[in-house]
Computed example of a mutant assay.
Amino acid sequence: MIRFALAAVVFASATHANENIPDQYPGSLLYSAPVEFIPGVFSAIGATAPPTYENAGHNNNLSFIMTDEGVVVINGGGSYGLAAALHEEIKARTDAPVVLVVNENGQGHAMLGNSYWITQGVPILAHVDAAAEFEDRGFQILESAERVSRDRHEGTVLQGPTETFEDEYILELGDFRIEVRYLGPSHSAGDVVVWLPNQNLVIAGDMAFHERMLPIFEDTYTLDWLETWDTEFEALNATYVIPGHGHPTNMDQVRRYTKGYLEYLRAQVGAHLDAGGGLSDAYYVDQSPYAHLDTFEELATKNAGRVFEQMEFE
Protein backbone atom coordinates (compact mmCIF):
# COMPACT_ATOMS: atom_id res chain seq x y z
CA MET A 1 0.00 0.00 0.00
CA ILE A 2 2.92 2.37 0.61
CA ARG A 3 4.05 2.01 -3.00
CA PHE A 4 0.51 2.67 -4.23
CA ALA A 5 0.32 5.86 -2.17
CA LEU A 6 3.72 7.07 -3.35
CA ALA A 7 2.78 6.47 -6.98
CA ALA A 8 -0.41 8.45 -6.57
CA VAL A 9 1.48 11.36 -5.03
CA VAL A 10 4.14 11.34 -7.75
CA PHE A 11 1.68 11.37 -10.62
CA ALA A 12 -0.84 13.73 -9.07
CA SER A 13 1.92 16.27 -8.50
CA ALA A 14 3.69 15.70 -11.82
CA THR A 15 4.51 18.65 -14.01
CA HIS A 16 1.45 19.55 -16.03
CA ALA A 17 1.47 17.98 -19.45
CA ASN A 18 2.69 20.39 -22.11
CA GLU A 19 1.30 20.12 -25.62
CA ASN A 20 4.27 22.13 -26.91
CA ILE A 21 6.85 19.41 -26.11
CA PRO A 22 7.22 17.57 -29.44
CA ASP A 23 8.65 14.30 -28.09
CA GLN A 24 9.79 13.09 -24.67
CA TYR A 25 11.34 9.78 -25.81
CA PRO A 26 13.44 10.40 -28.94
CA GLY A 27 14.77 6.84 -29.08
CA SER A 28 11.30 5.44 -29.77
CA LEU A 29 8.19 6.21 -31.78
CA LEU A 30 6.45 6.41 -28.41
CA TYR A 31 6.01 9.94 -27.10
CA SER A 32 7.13 8.83 -23.63
CA ALA A 33 8.48 5.64 -22.06
CA PRO A 34 6.06 3.45 -20.10
CA VAL A 35 6.04 4.13 -16.36
CA GLU A 36 4.80 1.73 -13.67
CA PHE A 37 1.98 3.53 -11.85
CA ILE A 38 1.12 0.78 -9.38
CA PRO A 39 2.73 -2.69 -9.30
CA GLY A 40 2.04 -4.39 -12.61
CA VAL A 41 0.21 -1.49 -14.27
CA PHE A 42 2.17 0.60 -16.76
CA SER A 43 1.27 3.49 -19.03
CA ALA A 44 3.10 5.26 -21.84
CA ILE A 45 1.62 8.75 -21.58
CA GLY A 46 0.91 10.34 -24.94
CA ALA A 47 1.17 13.98 -25.91
CA THR A 48 -1.72 16.15 -24.74
CA ALA A 49 -1.80 17.68 -28.21
CA PRO A 50 -3.35 16.85 -31.56
CA PRO A 51 -1.47 14.18 -33.53
CA THR A 52 1.65 15.49 -35.27
CA TYR A 53 4.57 14.03 -37.20
CA GLU A 54 6.83 14.78 -34.22
CA ASN A 55 4.69 12.83 -31.73
CA ALA A 56 4.02 10.10 -34.34
CA GLY A 57 0.32 10.18 -33.49
CA HIS A 58 0.99 9.02 -29.92
CA ASN A 59 -1.40 11.48 -28.28
CA ASN A 60 -3.27 9.08 -26.01
CA ASN A 61 -2.24 6.76 -23.22
CA LEU A 62 -1.07 3.25 -24.09
CA SER A 63 -1.33 1.12 -20.97
CA PHE A 64 -0.66 -2.49 -20.09
CA ILE A 65 -1.26 -4.82 -17.16
CA MET A 66 1.65 -7.19 -16.60
CA THR A 67 1.11 -10.53 -14.83
CA ASP A 68 3.02 -13.82 -14.76
CA GLU A 69 0.17 -15.37 -16.74
CA GLY A 70 0.17 -12.81 -19.52
CA VAL A 71 -0.04 -9.15 -20.45
CA VAL A 72 -3.20 -7.20 -21.30
CA VAL A 73 -2.66 -4.09 -23.46
CA ILE A 74 -5.14 -1.23 -23.36
CA ASN A 75 -5.28 0.48 -26.75
CA GLY A 76 -3.94 -0.90 -29.98
CA GLY A 77 -2.07 2.36 -30.65
CA GLY A 78 -2.25 4.88 -33.46
CA SER A 79 -0.14 2.93 -35.98
CA TYR A 80 1.65 -0.35 -36.67
CA GLY A 81 4.92 1.24 -35.56
CA LEU A 82 3.56 2.59 -32.28
CA ALA A 83 2.13 -0.81 -31.38
CA ALA A 84 5.45 -2.48 -32.23
CA ALA A 85 7.33 0.08 -30.11
CA LEU A 86 5.03 -0.57 -27.16
CA HIS A 87 5.52 -4.32 -27.56
CA GLU A 88 9.30 -3.86 -27.43
CA GLU A 89 8.90 -2.04 -24.12
CA ILE A 90 6.74 -4.88 -22.79
CA LYS A 91 9.22 -7.56 -23.90
CA ALA A 92 12.02 -5.65 -22.14
CA ARG A 93 10.10 -6.06 -18.87
CA THR A 94 8.65 -9.57 -19.03
CA ASP A 95 8.78 -12.87 -20.89
CA ALA A 96 5.03 -13.28 -20.50
CA PRO A 97 3.08 -13.07 -23.78
CA VAL A 98 0.51 -10.43 -24.63
CA VAL A 99 -2.78 -12.31 -24.34
CA LEU A 100 -5.30 -9.55 -25.12
CA VAL A 101 -5.49 -6.05 -26.60
CA VAL A 102 -8.43 -3.86 -25.56
CA ASN A 103 -9.53 -0.99 -27.83
CA GLU A 104 -10.99 1.71 -25.59
CA ASN A 105 -13.12 3.07 -28.46
CA GLY A 106 -13.32 3.22 -32.26
CA GLN A 107 -10.90 6.13 -32.78
CA GLY A 108 -7.67 5.85 -34.72
CA HIS A 109 -5.33 6.09 -31.75
CA ALA A 110 -7.15 3.14 -30.18
CA MET A 111 -7.45 0.87 -33.21
CA LEU A 112 -4.97 1.62 -36.01
CA GLY A 113 -2.24 -0.29 -34.19
CA ASN A 114 -4.40 -3.41 -34.35
CA SER A 115 -2.65 -4.06 -37.66
CA TYR A 116 0.49 -4.93 -35.67
CA TRP A 117 -1.15 -6.96 -32.93
CA ILE A 118 -2.94 -9.18 -35.42
CA THR A 119 0.45 -10.23 -36.84
CA GLN A 120 1.39 -11.37 -33.33
CA GLY A 121 -1.68 -13.58 -33.07
CA VAL A 122 -3.13 -11.53 -30.21
CA PRO A 123 -6.95 -11.33 -29.86
CA ILE A 124 -8.33 -7.78 -29.96
CA LEU A 125 -11.40 -6.77 -27.95
CA ALA A 126 -13.76 -3.80 -28.38
CA HIS A 127 -17.32 -2.82 -27.65
CA VAL A 128 -19.75 -3.58 -30.46
CA ASP A 129 -20.42 0.14 -31.03
CA ALA A 130 -16.71 0.94 -31.28
CA ALA A 131 -16.25 -1.86 -33.80
CA ALA A 132 -19.12 -0.50 -35.88
CA GLU A 133 -17.71 3.03 -35.70
CA PHE A 134 -14.30 1.88 -36.93
CA GLU A 135 -15.83 -0.21 -39.69
CA ASP A 136 -17.87 2.78 -40.85
CA ARG A 137 -15.14 5.45 -40.59
CA GLY A 138 -11.94 3.42 -40.72
CA PHE A 139 -10.82 4.46 -44.20
CA GLN A 140 -11.27 8.15 -43.37
CA ILE A 141 -9.42 7.67 -40.06
CA LEU A 142 -6.54 5.89 -41.80
CA GLU A 143 -6.19 8.55 -44.51
CA SER A 144 -6.13 11.35 -41.94
CA ALA A 145 -3.44 9.59 -39.87
CA GLU A 146 -1.31 8.90 -42.95
CA ARG A 147 -1.36 12.59 -43.91
CA VAL A 148 0.02 13.53 -40.48
CA SER A 149 2.49 10.73 -39.76
CA ARG A 150 3.67 9.98 -43.35
CA ASP A 151 6.60 7.53 -43.22
CA ARG A 152 6.02 6.96 -39.50
CA HIS A 153 2.73 5.28 -40.43
CA GLU A 154 4.34 2.58 -42.57
CA GLY A 155 2.78 -0.87 -42.27
CA THR A 156 -0.52 0.38 -40.88
CA VAL A 157 -3.64 -1.12 -42.43
CA LEU A 158 -7.24 -1.29 -41.31
CA GLN A 159 -7.86 -4.05 -38.78
CA GLY A 160 -10.86 -4.04 -36.50
CA PRO A 161 -11.27 -6.06 -33.29
CA THR A 162 -11.47 -9.84 -33.44
CA GLU A 163 -13.90 -10.03 -30.50
CA THR A 164 -16.70 -7.74 -29.34
CA PHE A 165 -18.92 -7.47 -26.26
CA GLU A 166 -21.91 -5.41 -25.13
CA ASP A 167 -21.83 -4.93 -21.34
CA GLU A 168 -18.70 -6.42 -19.78
CA TYR A 169 -15.83 -8.78 -20.47
CA ILE A 170 -14.02 -10.27 -17.47
CA LEU A 171 -10.79 -12.22 -17.16
CA GLU A 172 -8.57 -13.17 -14.23
CA LEU A 173 -4.79 -13.22 -14.50
CA GLY A 174 -2.68 -13.70 -11.39
CA ASP A 175 -3.62 -11.09 -8.79
CA PHE A 176 -5.67 -9.14 -11.30
CA ARG A 177 -9.38 -9.36 -11.94
CA ILE A 178 -9.72 -7.34 -15.14
CA GLU A 179 -13.20 -6.05 -15.94
CA VAL A 180 -13.66 -4.36 -19.30
CA ARG A 181 -16.91 -2.44 -18.91
CA TYR A 182 -19.23 -0.40 -21.07
CA LEU A 183 -20.80 2.03 -18.59
CA GLY A 184 -23.06 3.87 -21.03
CA PRO A 185 -22.92 6.77 -23.51
CA SER A 186 -20.04 9.16 -22.94
CA HIS A 187 -17.37 10.71 -25.15
CA SER A 188 -17.64 8.57 -28.30
CA ALA A 189 -19.24 5.40 -29.59
CA GLY A 190 -18.33 2.31 -27.59
CA ASP A 191 -16.10 4.00 -25.01
CA VAL A 192 -15.11 1.46 -22.35
CA VAL A 193 -13.22 1.49 -19.07
CA VAL A 194 -10.95 -1.21 -17.62
CA TRP A 195 -11.70 -1.64 -13.93
CA LEU A 196 -9.27 -3.41 -11.60
CA PRO A 197 -11.31 -3.93 -8.41
CA ASN A 198 -8.49 -5.61 -6.45
CA GLN A 199 -6.27 -2.57 -7.07
CA ASN A 200 -9.11 0.01 -6.94
CA LEU A 201 -7.82 1.46 -10.20
CA VAL A 202 -9.70 2.37 -13.36
CA ILE A 203 -8.13 2.81 -16.77
CA ALA A 204 -10.81 5.26 -17.77
CA GLY A 205 -10.11 5.92 -21.42
CA ASP A 206 -12.03 8.88 -22.78
CA MET A 207 -14.61 8.74 -20.03
CA ALA A 208 -12.31 11.07 -18.06
CA PHE A 209 -10.02 14.01 -18.86
CA HIS A 210 -8.01 16.40 -16.71
CA GLU A 211 -4.87 17.85 -18.37
CA ARG A 212 -6.22 18.55 -21.81
CA MET A 213 -9.61 19.89 -22.77
CA LEU A 214 -12.07 17.18 -23.65
CA PRO A 215 -13.44 17.28 -27.21
CA ILE A 216 -17.17 17.24 -27.87
CA PHE A 217 -17.89 15.54 -31.18
CA GLU A 218 -21.01 15.88 -33.29
CA ASP A 219 -22.36 12.66 -31.76
CA THR A 220 -21.18 13.35 -28.19
CA TYR A 221 -24.32 13.95 -26.13
CA THR A 222 -23.22 15.78 -23.03
CA LEU A 223 -26.39 15.11 -21.03
CA ASP A 224 -25.94 11.35 -21.57
CA TRP A 225 -22.25 11.58 -20.64
CA LEU A 226 -23.15 13.29 -17.37
CA GLU A 227 -25.76 10.66 -16.58
CA THR A 228 -23.28 7.84 -17.22
CA TRP A 229 -20.76 9.64 -15.04
CA ASP A 230 -23.15 10.08 -12.11
CA THR A 231 -24.80 6.66 -12.20
CA GLU A 232 -21.95 4.39 -13.27
CA PHE A 233 -18.48 5.94 -13.23
CA GLU A 234 -18.76 7.50 -9.76
CA ALA A 235 -20.10 4.18 -8.45
CA LEU A 236 -16.68 2.59 -9.05
CA ASN A 237 -15.31 4.82 -6.28
CA ALA A 238 -11.83 4.41 -7.77
CA THR A 239 -8.76 5.53 -5.84
CA TYR A 240 -6.55 5.67 -8.94
CA VAL A 241 -7.46 6.85 -12.43
CA ILE A 242 -5.46 6.47 -15.62
CA PRO A 243 -7.32 8.71 -18.08
CA GLY A 244 -7.29 8.41 -21.85
CA HIS A 245 -5.01 11.45 -22.08
CA GLY A 246 -2.64 12.92 -19.50
CA HIS A 247 -0.94 11.61 -16.38
CA PRO A 248 -2.52 9.12 -13.96
CA THR A 249 -4.40 10.92 -11.23
CA ASN A 250 -7.41 10.59 -8.93
CA MET A 251 -11.18 11.00 -9.05
CA ASP A 252 -11.15 14.57 -7.72
CA GLN A 253 -9.09 15.77 -10.67
CA VAL A 254 -11.04 14.04 -13.42
CA ARG A 255 -14.32 15.00 -11.77
CA ARG A 256 -13.25 18.64 -11.82
CA TYR A 257 -12.15 18.71 -15.44
CA THR A 258 -14.67 16.32 -16.99
CA LYS A 259 -17.97 16.47 -15.12
CA GLY A 260 -17.18 19.97 -13.88
CA TYR A 261 -16.36 21.25 -17.36
CA LEU A 262 -19.43 19.68 -18.96
CA GLU A 263 -21.70 21.17 -16.30
CA TYR A 264 -20.02 24.56 -16.55
CA LEU A 265 -20.24 24.73 -20.33
CA ARG A 266 -23.87 23.63 -20.33
CA ALA A 267 -24.65 26.33 -17.76
CA GLN A 268 -22.92 29.00 -19.86
CA VAL A 269 -24.69 27.92 -23.04
CA GLY A 270 -27.99 27.62 -21.15
CA ALA A 271 -27.70 31.21 -19.93
CA HIS A 272 -26.88 32.29 -23.49
CA LEU A 273 -30.00 30.54 -24.79
CA ASP A 274 -32.16 32.05 -22.05
CA ALA A 275 -30.94 35.49 -23.11
CA GLY A 276 -32.04 34.81 -26.70
CA GLY A 277 -28.51 34.33 -28.03
CA GLY A 278 -27.78 32.55 -31.28
CA LEU A 279 -25.18 30.09 -32.51
CA SER A 280 -22.74 32.67 -33.85
CA ASP A 281 -22.26 34.17 -30.39
CA ALA A 282 -22.48 30.86 -28.55
CA TYR A 283 -19.01 29.94 -29.77
CA TYR A 284 -17.61 32.66 -27.54
CA VAL A 285 -19.31 32.00 -24.20
CA ASP A 286 -16.87 32.38 -21.33
CA GLN A 287 -14.68 29.31 -20.81
CA SER A 288 -11.80 31.14 -19.13
CA PRO A 289 -11.68 28.87 -16.04
CA TYR A 290 -10.46 26.11 -18.38
CA ALA A 291 -8.18 28.18 -20.62
CA HIS A 292 -5.06 26.65 -19.03
CA LEU A 293 -5.88 23.19 -20.37
CA ASP A 294 -3.96 21.84 -23.34
CA THR A 295 -5.93 21.91 -26.63
CA PHE A 296 -8.11 24.77 -25.32
CA GLU A 297 -7.40 26.83 -28.43
CA GLU A 298 -8.29 23.96 -30.75
CA LEU A 299 -11.46 22.82 -28.99
CA ALA A 300 -13.19 25.45 -26.84
CA THR A 301 -15.21 27.21 -29.53
CA LYS A 302 -16.14 23.94 -31.26
CA ASN A 303 -17.31 22.50 -27.96
CA ALA A 304 -19.50 25.51 -27.23
CA GLY A 305 -21.11 25.41 -30.67
CA ARG A 306 -21.93 21.72 -30.39
CA VAL A 307 -23.40 22.09 -26.90
CA PHE A 308 -25.53 24.98 -28.17
CA GLU A 309 -26.87 22.82 -31.01
CA GLN A 310 -27.75 20.07 -28.52
CA MET A 311 -29.34 22.27 -25.87
CA GLU A 312 -31.36 24.26 -28.38
CA PHE A 313 -33.61 21.21 -28.78
CA GLU A 314 -33.49 19.69 -25.29
Results as ranks from 00 to 15, higher is better:
residue 156 T to M: 13
residue 126 A to I: 11
residue 164 T to I: 05
residue 115 S to A: 14
residue 241 V to Q: 04
residue 232 E to W: 07
residue 9 V to Q: 10
residue 116 Y to P: 08
residue 63 S to N: 11
residue 75 N to H: 14
residue 180 V to I: 03
residue 107 Q to F: 02
residue 22 P to C: 00
residue 147 R to C: 06
residue 228 T to P: 09
residue 19 E to F: 00
residue 213 M to A: 07
residue 200 N to F: 05
residue 133 E to P: 11
residue 302 K to Q: 15
residue 227 E to F: 11
residue 297 E to G: 12
residue 136 D to C: 13
residue 44 A to K: 14
residue 185 P to D: 09
residue 183 L to V: 12
residue 183 L to S: 09
residue 251 M to C: 08
residue 218 E to A: 15
residue 43 S to Y: 12
residue 256 R to A: 12
residue 286 D to N: 08
residue 85 A to W: 01
residue 23 D to M: 10
residue 275 A to V: 13
residue 284 Y to R: 14
residue 313 F to P: 04
residue 245 H to A: 15
residue 207 M to P: 09
residue 15 T to R: 14
residue 271 A to P: 04
residue 83 A to E: 02
residue 118 I to E: 06
residue 97 P to E: 07
residue 9 V to M: 15
residue 87 H to G: 06
residue 282 A to V: 00
residue 55 N to R: 10
residue 313 F to N: 07
residue 24 Q to R: 15
residue 209 F to E: 07
residue 313 F to K: 13
residue 1 M to Y: 15
residue 134 F to G: 13
residue 46 G to N: 12
residue 110 A to P: 07
residue 166 E to M: 01
residue 268 Q to W: 09
residue 92 A to K: 10
residue 202 V to K: 06
residue 40 G to D: 12
residue 172 E to Q: 09
residue 270 G to T: 01
residue 124 I to Q: 08
residue 130 A to L: 06
residue 289 P to L: 00
residue 132 A to E: 08
residue 27 G to Q: 07
residue 264 Y to W: 13
residue 110 A to Q: 12
residue 265 L to Y: 11
residue 229 W to E: 09
residue 312 E to F: 11
residue 55 N to Y: 04
residue 78 G to E: 00
residue 126 A to F: 01
residue 38 I to P: 06
residue 42 F to Q: 07
residue 179 E to H: 15
residue 249 T to D: 05
residue 286 D to V: 02
residue 142 L to A: 04
residue 17 A to C: 15
residue 183 L to K: 06
residue 119 T to V: 06
residue 134 F to Y: 10
residue 261 Y to Q: 01
residue 175 D to W: 01
residue 289 P to F: 03
residue 47 A to P: 04
residue 14 A to H: 03
residue 258 T to C: 11
residue 264 Y to K: 08
residue 29 L to Y: 06
residue 225 W to G: 03
residue 235 A to E: 05
residue 220 T to D: 03
residue 83 A to S: 13
residue 23 D to K: 11
residue 213 M to N: 02
residue 228 T to Q: 07
residue 130 A to T: 02
residue 74 I to N: 12
residue 117 W to H: 06
residue 198 N to P: 00
residue 120 Q to P: 13
residue 87 H to A: 14
residue 155 G to F: 09
residue 170 I to M: 08
residue 264 Y to T: 00
residue 190 G to I: 05
residue 36 E to S: 08
residue 80 Y to A: 12
residue 193 V to H: 08
residue 81 G to V: 04
residue 305 G to K: 05
residue 109 H to W: 04
residue 116 Y to T: 00
residue 271 A to E: 07
residue 301 T to E: 15
residue 253 Q to K: 10
residue 73 V to A: 01
residue 141 I to N: 05
residue 128 V to I: 14
residue 260 G to K: 04
residue 2 I to E: 10
residue 272 H to M: 05
residue 306 R to P: 01
residue 193 V to E: 00
